[in-house]
Design a protein around this nucleic acid. Structure first.
Lengths: 339, 339
DNA sequence: TCCAATCGTCGAACCGGTTCGAATGGCGTG
DNA sequence: CACGCCATTCGAACCGGTTCGACGATTGGA
């Protein structure tokens, strides 16, 4: 392995000079700079990351904590990965992917061993055990998902309450008086997915304010069951003229269900959901939806994280909670109610 | 930050003794071992990964090189991630996720800087530029995807030729004489996805041997276009009684297409494809398929990689090319041809 | 009782970078 | 021509572990 010493010898300078040539932290003669560059090139030198980390206590690596939950729609997580890794790379960071079931332990391990300069936590629950670990170490962290107590961390998430309101308001203004909401299953909520409840509560409130009847249900996340669930739900509320979706599996299953019922959209039923553009693409969903913007959230989280890591003044700034306002992508799946 | 020196002081021993207590590489008195354990516990000591890497030249990190291609089905990649990260963890390794567009450069960067002990390359193309980089550094690497020249690396992949033969044979034995094959689009092949061609060629050969007419087509990967493509394809070959799929987008679109044509399965058409169980689950695909086993391939790649890293004798063993024999998951979507 | 072997622990060197203070050289100026 | 200053480079210490040879204490045998 070629080290900085080899480069120094070849260029006829000291090791420290090579280091300065690399970092530019001290002025050097053009001549020396050139000789070092040539030596590096000829020897094919790349600094040893471990040694550098030891000396600078900076690894240029970010931790990405994700949990693969069997009942959640795994592909959705991919979009976060993309936003995080791409943004990290533009700032010169690599990403350590951590998917252990025991999140707190894994987090402690990578932070305490100084493998990473900061972490992005995905899928943050209402009361997330990882937060305690993160606060104890005092290292910077950015969350995707709003916990009950966001103290000491930066939070990025979709504004779920506003999303719920916007969806109800959208149908309400078209004249709908009775609609249905399909949320993620109960166990997602219990696991800490408070966003499900936040959207639901806001939707119920907005419906109430507008005098709209809103039937709020928790649908299964299992693709094999969600179809019949939707049938039953629609059977149970024959007067409903609109469907709101906050459940990916239900969204994927809806086209077949409506087709089987010969319920055309938007003539018979108006449909609005909450998912990502990529999700809509993969499943060819022809419905209007509020973009959940996973790639954008991942990018924002990393940007802020890097700021905190690299800029001393930023480290002292108050922590932010940034909730993206809902943006409706219109696919023409809503209209005036039938009859 | 608490270092090994702090622990040593607190336990009243030397730094090296603490190190030996941690690694167990030399015998210690029970008393000393206990005192060190207590000190570690009280101080909350965790070894610094950078320092350890520097001293041992082992990082306990594996690189995972993936490319996010816009026209490939991104969620499929998730299954590989799962297999790789989980297996890595059972062996005490973390995973550095590298998704840069410039694969060779990224690979060189992480290998030359000694950030990782070895790499897993996903989606390996027929002639993959990353292989040259990998061979030059001489570090261990495991591939998922069979390149033209697998010298110096371990390769794991589905046996695509056998998969093609098996699918044709399956329908052939049921009595089908004219069938259709939908492959991935041409540009996937051109980018190096030789597996597409390997399956196709073998299928054509097998059909030839059995006197079966096989119409082999390259379908679009774009969900918006693949539906009408399938309609045209089936219109063009009204005599076909079976459909083979080696194209995820086409598989996802097929149920709606067949429904629109009132072509029931397997009465009117028999269907067999190649995808993963998770893919089938997400898209509720009711068809028989050859399992492409991404999680299993990821696991095999990591197992072998770790063996090469950790066992000196393994490092010298000849490299392997392991092609998984196709396993058909029967969902009852095939039967005797109509008429 | 003395010596040798064994066991357990220590000290120092090393891994490959970074960084700070000091040394060296060239230049301009008095 | 001598001096001082500034720009540039060097040397040494340090980051936090691991590892090897050596040392001291204990034990066993002669």
């Amino acid at each position: 392995m070629v080290t900085i010493g080899d480069v120094a010898t070849r260029a006829g300078v000291s090791r420290s000079t090579v280091s300065y040539a690399l970092s530019g932290k001290r002025p050097l003669t053009e001549e020396v700079r050139r000789r070092v560059a040539v030596a590096i090139d000829e020897l094919g030198y790349t600094p040893n990351a471990g040694a550098r980390a030891l000396a600078t206590s900076q690894t240029k690596v970010l931790g990405l904590l994700a949990e693969f939950l069997p009942d959640e729609f795994a592909p959705a997580m991919m979009q976060y990965f993309l936003g995080v890794t791409e943004t990290a790379r533009t700032f010169g960071y690599d990403v350590l992917l951590i998917s252990e079931p025991d999140g707190p332990a894994a987090l402690h391990r990578v932070l305490a061993s100084r493998m990473v300069d900061g972490v992005v936590l995905l899928n943050v629950a209402e009361h997330d055990d990882r937060l305690g670990v993160l606060r104890d170490t005092g290292r910077p962290g950015a969350l995707v998902g709003l916990p009950a107590d966001p103290d000491g961390v930066d939070v990025f998430d979709l504004d779920f309450p506003e999303t719920g309101r916007a969806m109800v308001a959208h149908l309400g203004e078209l004249g709908h008086r009775e609609i249905v909401l399909v949320s993620q299953p109960e166990h997602v909520v219990q696991r800490g997915g408070a966003y499900v409840r936040r959207l639901r509560d806001a939707a119920l409130d907005e419906a109430d304010r507008r005098g709209i009847t809103l039937h709020a249900a928790f649908g299964p996340a299992d693709q094999t069951q969600v179809g019949s669930f939707l049938h039953h739900l629609l059977d149970a509320h024959p007067g409903a003229t609109g469907v709101l979706l906050n459940n990916e599996a239900a969204a994927a299953a809806l086209p077949a269900v409506l087709d089987a019922r010969s319920a055309s959209v938007p003539d018979v039923l108006s449909v609005v959901g909450r998912w990502s553009a990529d999700f809509a693409r993969y499943f060819s969903l022809p419905y209007s939806f509020v973009e959940s913007a996973p790639d954008r959230l991942g990018e924002m989280a990393v940007r802020q994280l890097v700021r905190r890591i690299e800029q001393e003044e930023a480290a002292a700034e108050p922590h932010v909670v940034r909730l993206l306002p809902p943006v409706l992508v219109d696919r023409g799946s809503t209209g005036a109610p039938r009859g």
